Amino acid sequence: MSLLSRDHLVTVLAPTRVTLLRAGRGGPAPCGAGDCEGGWSAAVDALQGLLREAGTRRGGLTVVLSSHFAHFRLVPWSDAIGSPAELETFTRIGFEDIYGPIAAGWALRISPEAAGRPRVAVAVEQALLERLQAVAQGAGLRLESVQPHLMAAYNRLQPRLARDNFVFAVAEPGRCSVLLARAGQWLSVRSSASADSERAVAALLERECELNGIGDPAAGPAPAVYVHAPGHAAGAWPTVEGIAPQALALGGGDTWQDMARAVAS
């Protein structure tokens, strides 16, 4: 069997729906979908069923995690941190301060930044990652990556963002995640429940900007505001602090296909 016959599957895991797509040169194509309810465990159960129906026994699997299944925080710079292990411990303590002892078992990823700059950290339940690994292996697939939607979308769209000052929002059904940067450094990261409407997302962005002094003339030039909202029309969004947001899309139109495009060419 030629290596060209290997499948590259992408799945989008959300609280109420799991979608399986097959990656290709023209973008991800639908391979199956199913509704679910009951947190990430039910979502992984649904994924297992979709993989069984697809019958694929060779290739790789990439997972896009809804921000419902990930936790984010800004990690301030500290001169007292002298090693990656100390950085992880410092970051974990920060998550435990917010979420309690449950965060002790979460898997962490921390963005690489230059010395002196804050970092963005994401935490995902270790049990979720282990279950995804087991399901992929059971289907004869290699689990190639697990990427929170916010970070996957940012990585794909980063070349289209202003370099130093921006507000970047990723809106998905029931949730909106926001990254703020000022003077080339991370200022804030937050993921919040949100109604699935342009007005609700704009109101959430207004609040985030106010909390972080965005829009205050004394804080410097106004940032560019970007919204990536899979499944939403690319029409005009309500202004945020007097700034008209720019809608950024990856194509496809369908919410789940567009989320998959964050990790699939």
Rank of each mutant, 00 (worst) to 15 (best):
A123L: 04
S177C: 11
R182G: 11
E198T: 08
S188L: 01
G184E: 04
Q133K: 14
E208V: 05
A114Q: 14
Q158R: 15
A224I: 06
R131Y: 07
H228S: 11
E241A: 15
L141S: 01
I243T: 14
D196Q: 02
G138A: 07
R142N: 09
N155T: 08
N212R: 08
P221H: 11
Q246R: 15
F168E: 04
A219I: 03
P221E: 09
V120H: 02
E130W: 05
G251C: 08
A224S: 15
V135Y: 05
A115V: 12
L129G: 00
L205K: 02
A162I: 02
H149A: 14
G213W: 02
G213F: 05
E241N: 13
A115R: 14
R199N: 11
R156A: 10
A139M: 07
D258M: 07
D216T: 12
P159A: 10
A114G: 08
G251R: 12
Q133G: 05
A134P: 00
S145P: 02
Y154R: 12
P217E: 09
A249V: 10
A219M: 13
Q257V: 14
I243W: 03
V120S: 00
M151Y: 01
R190P: 00
W186K: 03
A153T: 11
G174I: 03
A234I: 00
R156P: 06
A234K: 02
S191N: 06
G253L: 09
D254Q: 13
R142G: 06
E113H: 02
S145I: 00
A224Y: 07
R182K: 14
A234N: 09
A127G: 14
V135N: 01
A162M: 11
A114R: 15
N165F: 04
